[in-house]
Design a protein around this nucleic acid. Structure first.
Lengths: 345, 345
DNA sequence: ATTCGTAATGTTAACGATAACATAATCCGT
DNA sequence: ACGGATTATGTTATCGTTAACATTACGAAT
């Protein structure tokens, strides 16, 4: 039974099905694609034969003719942040329903890699791309070129504005203001900010929000306590160690995201200090671990799954309707108050 | 500056570059692909012009000619389990280096979806697929057909054996035996097993390992305490509630994976019982949350990243070398002893 | 039976790139 | 200066599918 003959490759084409039945490829094509003008008997024979021969349509050829691949490229900075798998989950949900497939690419927070990745996706002629950009330089010309080329592009989470691409983000600046104000209300006299990079949209927006809150409340901040080490746990650890090595350190910390906050918490605790008694800290993202930490981390909840769904839906509308307007959506976040900010049950 | 002319699509082809310079497409093709027999001057002109016109090679057309897409399909059951993003990370690392791109697909633990997904990947003519299967029925004919069709296929984590496909898994059965024995050594008189599904390879192997340990130590187990509710947190919660509703419940629990263990822990604690004082529990996976839980979860560490890398490397070797042998690899795991098993610091 | 209309089927060209073969241009040694 | 070897360039056919046009078949109406 096992191992019939060993043909090198048995990928069946339309033509082979056609010859097997003595009809033309067009008739087979019509039958397979359920187009009109095929005799019922013929159609049944074709369908049976196609099944028997194990015919699978070649989408590569189809794509070449139609200039449509039903494929979407997804560019994310770091797949191991719990935020992004959740976004991908949301994207998947929409794309699956709309019969698109996704190319998932991880740039490791590297803009050069990001460009290469996008170029590769363009070469593969994806119908559109979803990007959370790691751009840190003030040069949007690359994405401007992408937009000009007509490739549908929707940013999510980390956006680049003003180049004619839609964006699904959150109200980062306001959320950052609110969570900073939450710390201010606790009465902490000094607050530091652990940023990833101000070149990245979320880094800039969250820092601005931090400053808004400080200014509104007539507080000043020590520029030494505003540092940029990166967006992951390791960089949070290093950033915090740097701050702790200064002659003075702040009474509270706003971290640009939860991984950074988690790294910082490790640094604080390893230095023999207590959270929130010695240093209070808040994050941003509502990482899956936030509620489990000791103390649990006060943070900003971002609806990752929702962001993924909205971004994918927007992109598909942009692909399928050339008149779909460009828009920037800011989804509301909410503050999740736990223990790390000093809040008592 | 913005909004030059509004051409519908400005995707440049080889031919357009060729006409712009008055040479043939072949010459352009050779120049672009850095092939020999192109005059240096001509080559420079072509490269300049291609860049100026914004030419991007069309991989769809290339793929049609070469029957190679440099694309790998990745089929995973649930992207929100921390295990899988880690695996994907490992896969990404290898594929990026080898210039492949990955189609990421999520089947939501549904075998029907899985088949449709694999069919879609075949239609898109991926060069190979990496699958962690949700197959729960005793019918491997579908994958047998895939293997027979010559499509390179490597399973990871959840394997289907005996059909001629390679597999990168872990020594599930042994690991399960070891962690069960760890509980036995604690002296618990009764142990239950929360399975996902015995139809899935890991469910079967881990259950077998559990039984091995019990038998070896002359213990019996109550079949009522062996339940199958699924592989996620919710099913763990429900499974445990079911067990707790029985007239008697076991002194310790082996969960088929960490999400199930986490759900079960919630159920136990909501029932007013303590872990490990009333019920001890161990998991499997070393989820990112395991060490942060209260109590921290004793579990089996599976090198997810490593599995991803090995699986991707094996698949690429299989794609690029028709004589690459079929092999099943079992990677070693290690037990991470924390508090939920009753261990004291 | 002739003609017309529609349904069924077939043929050709095209999508963009490249392999394989064909030709033109250049170089070199004697 | 000539023939043979290179090197540079061009032409044709092909990958698998489908759009667009062309043809054939068949039933109905007169």
């Amino acid at each position: 039974m096992a191992g019939r003959d060993k043909v090198k490759s048995n990928i069946i084409t339309l033509k082979e099905v056609a010859t097997a039945l003595g009809v033309s490829t067009m008739t087979v094509s019509r039958a397979i694609n359920n187009r009109p003008n095929v005799d019922d008997t013929t159609k049944r024979q074709i369908l049976d034969m196609a099944k028997k021969m194990g015919y699978t349509p070649n989408h590569v050829a189809k794509s070449l003719v139609s200039s449509r691949t039903y494929t979407i490229g997804v560019v994310i900075p770091e797949i191991s942040h719990s935020f992004f798998p959740d976004v991908v989950h949301g994207i998947e949900e929409v794309t699956k329903q709309k019969k698109y497939q996704i190319f998932l690419t991880n740039t490791s927070e590297n803009y050069e890699t990001e460009r290469q990745t996008v170029d590769a996706l363009r070469s593969k002629r994806v119908d559109g791309i979803l990007v959370s950009s790691s751009l840190t330089i003030d040069d949007t010309s690359y994405y401007q070129m992408i937009v000009n080329s007509g490739l549908p592009l929707v940013f999510f989470d980390r956006c680049i504005h003003g180049i004619g691409a839609s964006c699904i983000g959150v109200n980062d600046r306001l959320a950052s203001t609110l969570i900073t104000e939450h710390l201010i209300r606790h009465g902490y006299p000094s607050i530091g900010f652990l940023n990833g990079s101000t070149g990245v949209s979320i880094g800039k927006a969250r820092y601005e929000g931090f400053k808004d809150a400080m200014r509104t409340h007539g507080l000043t901040w020590n520029e030494q306590w505003v540092v940029e080490y990166g967006f992951n746990e390791k960089s949070g650890f290093e950033a915090m160690n740097h701050v702790l090595s200064l002659s003075e350190y702040p009474r509270a910390i706003v971290a640009v995201n939860d991984p950074v906050a988690i790294g910082a918490m490790k640094a604080i605790q390893q230095a023999g200090l207590s959270i929130p008694e010695d240093i209070a800290i808040v994050g941003f993202t509502n990482d899956i671990r936030a509620e489990l930490l000791t103390p649990s981390l006060t943070t900003v909840h971002q609806p990752a799954h929702e962001i993924g769904k909205l971004a994918a839906a927007k992109l598909i509308r942009t692909i399928e309707n050339p008149n779909e307007p460009v828009e920037s959506l800011e989804i509301d976040t909410s503050i999740v108050v736990r223990r790390s900010c000093g809040h008592q049950p």
